[in-house]
């Protein structure tokens, strides 16, 4: 029975200790962070790899570990919901992306981007449109001409409905005015490039990194990138706007956000840690190899960007369905 008493007092002690940890004080904000920060990661693949790297770099800046925790599923909805439900104290942040807007406007999230406090944008990724090298299409306009005059529809490979590459494809073909002559074929797990290689689709929109090896080997050709500026590693590929797609500018950003109500000082500390990480050689080195670009933006600018992109995505999803 004696050990039962020990257990009780031990439990009491732990409750007391927890109470000490849990009480928020004004001082806690100045000392932030006093314990590990959890960075929720919404997707696997490149998003996860960059997130892990960023967390690693930010840990060094903050003096406390930033722990990348993967909460995938539901197109990001699971992770957003988790972070949304946590205390706004800066110890729970999310490695977010445009998926906050596409998730909300597709009805998969009960809250929108306003439920989060932006911290900083860190990277951008720009999708590219590719075709087979033997397709005879040397430029975007060649492809558009062929589609307009052709009998059959253009088979266009991207990821599933509502995914970023799918949205990009819809926006591009709307801009080009040939959306009713395009069949969107949804592929998972970045399979679109192989399907293009094998000739089952006529064109594909994916991330440049997935196309580059096949472009180098002479099997595929990238016609344009969908951002407003060319991509550094493939600067011979024009932007779609340059190639004749109106003023198309679609770029996927990734950054950090915390639940709404997170104190301003805490956001600033995280923002500065992210800035240092973004300026590091390590991230720069990884960006070239993994196929993303570093493009830091502070909390305020980032907030404006999110709001602007949200309107664009809302519009796209409305017309897409």
């Amino acid at each position: 029975m004696r050990s039962f008493g020990v257990a009780t007092s031990w439990l009491a002690a732990s409750v007391a200790a927890a109470a000490l940890i849990a009480v928020p004080t004004a001082k806690a904000q100045e000392d932030f962070p006093t314990k590990p920060v959890e960075m929720t990661i919404l997707f696997g693949g490149t998003a996860q790899t960059i997130g892990q790297l960023l967390a690693d770099l930010m840990s060094k800046e903050l003096g406390q570990p930033v722990v990348p925790v993967s909460r995938t599923g539901g197109g990001g909805a699971i992770g957003y919901s988790h972070v949304h439900s946590t205390r706004p104290d800066g110890y729970n942040i999310v490695w977010n992306s445009n998926s906050i807007s596409s998730g909300y406007h597709q009805g998969n999230l009960p809250f929108n981007y306003e439920a989060f406090e932006p911290i900083a944008r860190v990277t951008v990724e720009v999708p590219a449109l590719a075709v087979r090298a033997d397709s005879g299409w040397e430029s975007l306009s060649d492809m558009v001409e062929a589609v307009k005059s052709g009998e059959t529809k253009l088979k266009m490979g991207a990821s599933g409905q509502g995914s970023f590459t799918d949205l990009t494809a819809k926006a591009l073909f709307q801009e080009l005015g040939i959306e009713d002559k395009v069949v969107y074929v949804p592929y998972g797990d970045g399979k679109a490039p192989v399907e293009l290689l094998a000739g089952r689709v006529d064109a594909a929109i994916q991330w440049p990194g997935q196309f580059i090896p096949h472009v180098q080997s002479g099997d595929l050709k990238m016609l344009c990138v969908t951002g407003s500026e060319r991509v550094e590693v493939i600067d011979d590929v024009p932007t779609c706007a340059e190639a004749g797609a109106g003023d198309l500018d679609i770029t996927m950003w990734r950054g950090l956000a915390a639940p709404e109500g997170t104190p301003q000082e805490v956001v600033e500390k995280l923002q500065e840690a992210a800035r240092k990480a973004a300026e590091s050689d390590q991230l720069k080195d990884a960006s070239g190899k993994l196929g993303f670009e570093i493009s830091f933006m502070d909390a305020q600018e980032f907030g404006e960007l999110i709001a602007k992109d949200d309107e664009v995505i809302a519009e796209l999803l409305k017309s897409g369905n």
Binding site: G190, L197, P213, Q216, S217, D219, K289
Partner: peptide, 25 residues
């Protein structure tokens, strides 16, 4: 081909890429 067959090989792909080994022909 640089095509990962499942999530596990996708992570290996990430590891190869980050060390400058771009799979492909």
């Amino acid at each position: 081909l640089g095509i990962p067959g499942d999530p596990a090989t996708a992570i290996i792909l990430g590891g190869l890429l980050i060390h400058g080994l771009t799979p492909g022909p």
